[in-house]
């Protein structure tokens, strides 16, 4: 199944995010082995060189580690994975604020709107 990618952003950056999410969510466990560049490129239906670039980026950040000829594994440093999770969460928040700004909400208004919505959601859950 080809991965759905956005049209307006570099492909490798989106591959980095996808892999980060898979690591954070535990689809690839800490210390677990990752598929090869080729395999993953075929699954995602993207160019192997682009996948290679995404892997290099994740290696630089320490999230994945190359073990010579044994391939690559996910880091066992769970602190690093948590940092990565926070970073992605922050990006989601920025997207929310940007969207709300387009509707004319300032940051604090956007925050209270979010609280209000969350509150309603909880009330509904009970």
């Amino acid at each position: 199944m080809a991965w759905n990618l956005d049209n307006d952003r570099p492909i490798y950056a989106q591959l980095v995010e996808r892999l980060q999410v898979q690591i954070i969510s535990g689809a690839y466990l800490p210390g677990g082995k990752l598929p090869s560049v080729r395999e993953l490129a075929a699954v995602a239906a993207v160019n192997p060189n682009t996948m290679q670039k995404a892997f290099a980026e994740l290696e630089k950040s320490g999230l994945i580690i190359t073990q010579g000829t044994n391939g690559r594994i996910v880091t066992e440093d769970e602190g690093l994975i948590r940092d990565s999770k926070r970073e992605l969460a922050k990006r989601h928040a920025e997207v929310y604020f940007a969207g709300m700004e387009g509707l004319g909400f300032g940051r604090s208004q956007a925050v209270s709107f979010l609280q209000e919505t969350a509150g309603k959601g909880e009330a509904g859950d009970e």
Binding site: N7, D8, R9, P10, I11, Y12, A13, N47, T50, K53
Partner: peptide, 12 residues
């Protein structure tokens, strides 16, 4: 490169 176009122009 494809990603250069996307980076520079913000579009596919």
């Amino acid at each position: 490169s494809v990603d250069n176009v996307r980076e520079q122009h913000g579009k596919s």
